[in-house]
Amino acid sequence: MRAEPGMIEAEDVAKSFTVRKRSGRLRRTRTTLDAVDGVSFTVRRGEFVGYLGPNGAGKSTTIKMLTGILTPSSGSLRVCGLDPARRRTELARRIGVVFGQRTTLWWDLPLRDSLTLIRRLYRVDAAAHRTRLAELTALLELEPFLDTPVRQLSLGQRMRGDLAAALLHGPELLVLDEPTIGLDVVSKATVRGFLERLNTERGTTILLTTHDLGDIERLCRRVMIIDHGRLAFDGGLDRLRATVGADRMLVVELARPGPPVVLDGIEVLRTEGPRQWLRLPNAVNAAAVVSALAERHEVRDISLREADIEEVLAGLYRGDHAYWCSGRPVAP
């Protein structure tokens, strides 16, 4: 045993489901689906890790194993030094979980009541509860709707309520499964700011599943990417961008169709009539490129886009950079 065990230690963790499929009138065939197919990683105390991957990659299944809801089919898993499936109850008192598409709150009762129930559930003493509730209320701006029935809350308000619910017992580790999905810009900003402070000021370890590049860029110093149940990447955000060439891209519309523009250090990835797609490495100053372009060409329109995480991921799995020019329309 090491002196400082990781907050989460996963070694070759796998989970397979048996799926029955209809094959013909009455016959059914059983197939095995490897939702998580042998992942190993360690999350240390105080880290903020993004856990990414396309839909169906195995993110939620991993989280269900981390929280002890599902038992791994094989491999070994330790969270806070405990085997989650065996010591679920003990573990739940030390970690907090938010399942973004579900709620722990009771629809028909005011938010305040759900939080009271959670205090009883986690046996938080009254004084500690008062302090934490006041703190969470301030940070998450819950005050205006503490006494509103949960069913009347907006998605953003409900999510902030769920975050408070997950943190009332002061967990060491917070696991979030798509907490910003469907949130409006303001709520997203509140949630992000809150998570950032929680991690830096409180030292709460956070594992975050999201599809939102903004979340990742603002919050996660480290990302893990899972695809088809396997870890495809584990490292810093910068390294991810470097690995998959996730530079920005400049889409230029010139006055006339012509040959690819020639600019130092800039690769033209594709041309289509008057439009050209230019790869802009992170080191290159976009403003300089734009003014150089404008000097030499008659430019109709210009737009700069960041690679979004779906495309970065897609590129990563395909092992090429085709994602730059495919997928969504690149119109400004």
């Binding site: 269900k64 002890g68 109850t89 739940a92 399942f99 579900r102 709620t103």
Partner: peptide
């Protein structure tokens, strides 16, 4: 609908 995940997670 899978909301039972929440119930199964509770320390009760």
């Amino acid at each position: 609908n899978g909301d039972v995940a929440i119930d199964l997670y509770r320390p009760t």
